[in-house]
Structure formats: structure tokens, C-alpha cells
Design a protein around this nucleic acid. Structure first.
Lengths: 131, 131
DNA sequence: GTTATATATGAACAAATATACAGATATATG
DNA sequence: CATATATCTGTATATTTGTTCATATATAAC
């Protein structure tokens, strides 16, 4: 390995001199890095799922297909206003969609993507005891 | 309030009376709901991935296998202290693991789970134009 | 031993975010 | 029309969280 190569140390010409040890590896990682736009979309998706109430709302939709706001509020035992705010974030991100029927608005998952993410993760947790 | 319940409306006996429209669906969703411990673990995982620097760090590890802190800092162009803090969160959650070699500490993904999550999502984004 | 390097840790501060309350909108019903 | 219901929206606040700076630890080299 590159355990003792002081010959490999380099200083980049950026504004804030960044040291790197394995220059080739750094260059390769930079070359294959995700475009910023992709990073933002991925981050936004995971950030939105990463909150307890929203996870439970999404999971309820996975299980039931679609539900109205007040029923979702009943499932997660939270005020309808809070649930409405949470659903709005998920809807604006394209994670859930809405269908109006009279006074009620039914929410459902936009596609199978989030369901897959949750399934993969719950499956993984079943095989990985909590640390 | 509870006088003459029109058909399906019900009021639960909880502390903060929660209305529900489709009682059966609510009951089913509650019955199939994730255990709280699972909700917490899933939430924590997605929350940790849901931040731009950490996404980029994880993606760099996906691409290169393992890297030391200063090289990771070079890749994401952030101060080494920030990267160290970010990596600590990922390590405490069991998402990455460390290997010491001399003065340097090499980080890598603990298992294929996060790689799968990122792959599934980037694949999905490729087929879903930004809204 | 001392010095230099690589990383970790603690604390403080600013920015982001979830939550709760009040009020607004939209639809249904009489 | 007026009233009730289901949901939404705006705002304020309290909590969370990322970042930065200073300091500490651990290893290596001298």
C-alpha cells in the first residue's frame, strides 16, 4: 500500500490547499463523482424519508395503497395539521400524489421506488441486529 | 360530536380523540405498522444519508472501496474536521467502518446495503426527469 | 525525549427544520 | 344562501443540526 510515500503528497492549487495522499484515487473519485444535481435530488429524497412521522406515513401508504389525511393522522396518531404539512413536503418532492374525492384528498405513493427503498431497508434490518 | 354518527365515522378512545373515516383501513394499517424500534432505525439511516456531504462521501467510498480522511476531504472539497465529524456519524450508525494503517484511518462501507440504496435511487433518477 | 502528522473530540454559533396555532380554502349539505 | 367538514397555508417558536475553531489523542520520525 501507500503506507510510507512522502513522495506522493501533493497540494492542489485550489483556494484552500487540500492535501491528498493517494492522488490517483482522489482523481478517480472526483472523476466518477455524481453530478451536483443528482446529489441534491438524492439528498432531498433521503432527507425527506429520514423523519419518524414521514416514515410511518409512507409505510402506511405502502400497506394500504391510499388513505385520506384524517385516516393517516389516525394511523400515526398525530394532529391532522402536522400530517398535512408532512404530506405536503412528500408531495412537493414527487414522492406521493393526491386524488381528490369530494372533500377528502387521498394520498398514495407516486411509484414503486420508495416502497423498494423501504423494503430493502427493512429486509436489511431483519438480518442486522441493532448495534 | 358523537351524536348520530353518519355511517362510518368513529371516535377512538385515545386521549386525543382521533377521527377516522375508513375504520377498517385504519385498523389494518395500525396492525401492520412497523415496530417503533424499526421506525427509529430506518429513520436514522435515511436521515444520515440525506445530507449532501455525506452522500458524496458515501458515493466516493462506493466508487473507490476505501479512503483515508484527508483524501475524502479532498474529494468532497471540505475541511478535514467537517469530514471527520460526518464520518463519525456514519460510523456510529454502522454505515461505515474503519481500518487504521499507521497514522491514517481508512473508511469503507460496512456492507452492500447503502450501495444498493444509492444504486436503486440513481437508477430511478435516471428514469425520472427532475420535476 | 521532542516534533510533525493524521484524525478525533468538544463547544459555540448560525442555519435549517418540525411543530403547533390561527386562519383560509374548497367541497358538501340543507 | 349558511353551515359543517376536510384539508391547506402562514407564521412563530423551540429543537435539531451542520460548521467552525480550538484542543486532544495517537502514531511516526528524529
Amino acid at each position: 500500500m501507500n503506507t510510507t510515500p512522502p513522495a506522493d503528497i501533493s497540494v492542489e492549487a485550489d483556494e484552500c490547499a487540500v492535501r491528498s495522499v493517494d492522488t490517483a484515487k482522489v482523481a478517480a473519485a472526483k472523476a466518477r463523482a455524481l453530478p451536483l444535481a443528482d446529489v441534491e435530488r438524492i439528498t432531498e429524497l433521503f432527507r425527506l424519508i429520514g423523519e419518524p412521522t414521514r416514515v410511518r406515513l409512507l409505510y402506511a401508504l405502502v400497506e394500504t395503497g391510499e388513505m385520506c389525511v384524517c385516516d393517516l393522522a389516525a394511523v400515526v396518531d398525530a394532529p391532522e395539521t402536522s400530517v398535512s404539512h408532512a404530506l405536503r413536503l412528500l408531495r412537493m418532492a414527487g414522492i406521493v400524489r393526491t386524488r381528490r374525492d369530494g372533500r377528502m384528498i387521498f394520498y398514495s405513493l407516486t411509484d414503486a421506488h420508495v416502497r423498494l427503498l423501504l423494503d430493502v431497508t427493512t429486509e436489511h434490518l431483519n438480518h442486522t441486529p441493532a448495534q
